[in-house]
Design a protein around this nucleic acid. Structure first.
Lengths: 170, 170
DNA sequence: GCCATTCGATTGACGCTTCAAGCATGGTCG
DNA sequence: CGACCATGCTTGAAGCGTCAATCGAATGGC
């Protein structure tokens, strides 16, 4: 009657999986909420602006931006349209490749990301970094990297496999 | 706690965060895809059916089900409506509390979850468990627990803070 | 007993993501 | 060249989740 639905995971694996499941389900929302509330920016929109703010000339091709933000090109295109409507980003054709579009951070967009960055950083600290020891954080990061390497090769995560251009403040 | 004067993240923290961000962004989709493709079931729908399959009488109150699946009651309600339309679940008023609704797994729903379980288990193994050593998995689970404990108290995660009724294979 | 409050659940509208086309440009090879 | 396919990006429709509003039922205070 009450048979188990995961016949191939043992108790330890099951427990681990359920915690992982809970985290990947709840953490995005928990990170989104403060940003949304205090800056009217979704986590993803913030990421887009942040990646632009780190780029030379505050400019990136849509494809590169999609890679950096782990998004499909389609998703990015929709979001950039909204960001453009809000005045934070503008689009211009690439001089190199006439198929390509470049997204450019506007001055207003720069102000916005500067406003939002501390809110975002605070969430990341409060929910993750400050809760873990240095060693735990390092282990966590390594496990995440291993999992990323195992993900099926969608075109949207090529950038994740190579080292990121990590920078601190925008 | 939050008293750090530097509002930004340093390079190490930044790198760790970006990996975590990538995982919580990409892992859900990677786990969803095979299930969706091979069983026409989203990960969340599968979770709902699985939690019902483990319940005594294959029955749970909506609120309990929402806790177990880390979902809002609203989300669960929508999903259960679809599952009911598909014939996997039926709803009935609770005899104990006339406000409450009980979701019950139908025989067809049982068959469905039995079909889907191996697909799900395979994904979890391939993407997570098999990639990590026992020690890494244990560390990962512990970090996830710490993060869950730190999440702001939404009503949808009460069950996560207390030990889950973890069950393994029969 | 009565009123206010809380609880359990549902619903509809809205916003966002995905999916499947679609279109133009760029590269490749005969 | 010219046919052909890959690349870069956009678009519209459909599906799903969130939010706010709602409603009946239970609970607590007086």
């Amino acid at each position: 009657m009450c048979g188990d639905s995961n016949p191939w995971l043992d108790a330890t694996q099951q427990r681990a999986w359920r915690r992982v499941a809970a985290v990947i389900q709840l953490l995005p929302g928990a990170l989104d909420a403060p940003l949304q509330r205090e800056t009217q920016l979704s986590l993803f929109s913030y990421m887009v602006l942040a990646m632009l703010s780190e780029a030379p000339g505050h400019t990136r091709r849509m494809t590169d931006l999609a890679s950096l933000t782990n998004a499909s090109l389609s998703r990015l295109s929709h979001v950039v349209r909204r960001l453009e409507a809000a005045g934070w980003v503008s689009r211009q054709p690439s001089p190199d490749d006439r198929r390509a579009t470049q997204a450019v951070l506007t001055p207003a967009g720069w102000d916005k990301v500067v406003d939002a960055a501390p809110v975002h950083a605070r969430s990341v600290r409060e929910l993750i970094i400050d809760r873990l020891s240095d060693e735990q954080l390092a282990q966590f990061a390594e496990v995440c990297q291993i999992i990323l390497d195992a993900l099926p090769c969608d075109d949207r995560l090529t950038a994740l496999r190579s080292p990121l251009a990590d920078r601190a403040a925008p």
